[in-house]
Each structure stands twice: as structure tokens, then as C-alpha cells.
């Protein structure tokens, strides 16, 4: 194995040419989008809806009621949530008994894999959104682990309108991703989908069948 490394690198370093070492002239200028906050919200909503996400524009005060209304329309065996986050605490404080019970993601995957895969729905926060393509940015962490947005058939994501960026390039630059890459970053543009059979687009393959985005605007 060590030989492979040495051999490969030796082949490359030996074959490097003076041209490769000369300064590389960049001729390309990036064309930056500049959208207003309203435009960003509208663009993200339109794009994500086109990818079969359900997007609800609500407010910092009204989102829990909007969530409850959505949940009451469905038959769900539970809602996976992160009990230690601000979002989780806010939910727990006002949860009603007729709603699907809140289930905390409190153990490691090794301890709860079966239960995790059996739960119907989850709710997570988001790190932000991308207006140009219509996607959520998630930075899963110890409170909101990676499988929360993947295993349940329904994923609900809460997005602060102020954190929607024009584009991925802008998000990377403005939030200085380079300096603090977490274990995992996800961009999510809709429910899981496939077109592997005759290119027929169908939703809900391995990941969530439904994605609901609650945008907190105002």
C-alpha cells in the first residue's frame, strides 16, 4: 500500500511539466445573482415546489400552529425531534396530546436503528437555503443527527427566511464554510426521487417521500 502511494506520486511528480508549474491565468468571471429577500423566498419556494416539496410561508410566531395544523391532517406514529435545541424546546413547551408524540433522537444509531427507521416523521432546523436552485442547507450535528432528514417518510424542515442565500457559491463565501467544515453538510431540494425506470420521475424511493418546508418570514 505504501508502495502504491510512493509509486503513483513519483510517476506524477516525474511527469510534471514546466507548463504545469507556470501561473494559471483565470479568464472566467463569475456572474453573481443579486436577489432581494422577497425574491429569494419566492424563488426558493417556486423551485422547491417544482421538486414536489411542500413550502409553507409562515412567521416566527405562527409556525408552530402551522405545523400542528399540518400534522393534524395526517396519521403519524410520532415526530422525531431534537429535544435539546431551541426549536425542540419550543415544540415541547406547547405540544398537544392529540398530536403525534414527540420522540427525541437521544441515543446513538447503534442503540436505536430499528426504532429510528420505524418512525413516520421528523422535524429539523436548517442552516439556510439556496434561492437559485431551490434547496435547503443542513448542517447535522450531535443534536440533529444526519439520519433525521433521511430515515422518516416525512421530513419537516424549518427555515429562517433571513438565511436564504442567492446561491451555493454565496453561502460558501458568506458563511466562511472553508474554515469550519462540519462532519456533514447536506443540500436538499425535495423529497427523495428516482427516474431509473424509463426515466419516469417518481418520489419517495429510499429517503423521505414528503418534504415540508416551513419558512419563517417575519
Amino acid at each position: 500500500m505504501n508502495n502504491a502511494r510512493a509509486n503513483i506520486l513519483a510517476r506524477l511528480w516525474t511527469a510534471i511539466s514546466p507548463d504545469d508549474l507556470a501561473p494559471f491565468e483565470s479568464s472566467v468571471a463569475g456572474s453573481a445573482l443579486e436577489l432581494s429577500r422577497t425574491e429569494r423566498v419566492a424563488r426558493l419556494k417556486q423551485r422547491m415546489e417544482a421538486m414536489h416539496a411542500e413550502v409553507v410561508i409562515t412567521s416566527a410566531n405562527g409556525w408552530i400552529d402551522a405545523l400542528k395544523a399540518t400534522l393534524r391532517q395526517r396519521l403519524l406514529n410520532g415526530l422525531l425531534y431534537a429535544p435539546d435545541t431551541a426549536l425542540g424546546k419550543a415544540l415541547a413547551a406547547v405540544w398537544d396530546s392529540d398530536l403525534p408524540p414527540l420522540v427525541g433522537y437521544t441515543e446513538t444509531i447503534e442503540q436505536c436503528k430499528e426504532r429510528l427507521f420505524a418512525i413516520d416523521a421528523s422535524i429539523t432546523s436548517t442552516q439556510g437555503g439556496l434561492a437559485d436552485v431551490g434547496a435547503l442547507i443542513l448542517w447535522p450535528d450531535s443534536d440533529e443527527p444526519r439520519l433525521m432528514s433521511l430515515a422518516p417518510a416525512l421530513h419537516i424542515a424549518v427555515l429562517d427566511a433571513a438565511k436564504i442565500h442567492d446561491s451555493l457559491a454565496q453561502a460558501i463565501a458568506h458563511e466562511h464554510w472553508r474554515e469550519k467544515m462540519p462532519t456533514n453538510i447536506l443540500l436538499i431540494s425535495g423529497p427523495s426521487k428516482t427516474a431509473d425506470i424509463e426515466l419516469v420521475l417518481t418520489f419517495g424511493v429510499h429517503g423521505p417521500k414528503e418534504l415540508i418546508v416551513l419558512i419563517l418570514d417575519g
Partner: peptide, 10 residues
């Protein structure tokens, strides 16, 4: 425009 998932593992 983008796939459903873009997964960055660090």
C-alpha cells in the same frame, strides 16, 4: 438544476 441531495462528507 440540482439533485435532491448533495452530500458533503468531511
Amino acid at each position: 438544476l440540482i439533485t435532491t441531495y448533495f452530500n458533503m462528507i468531511t
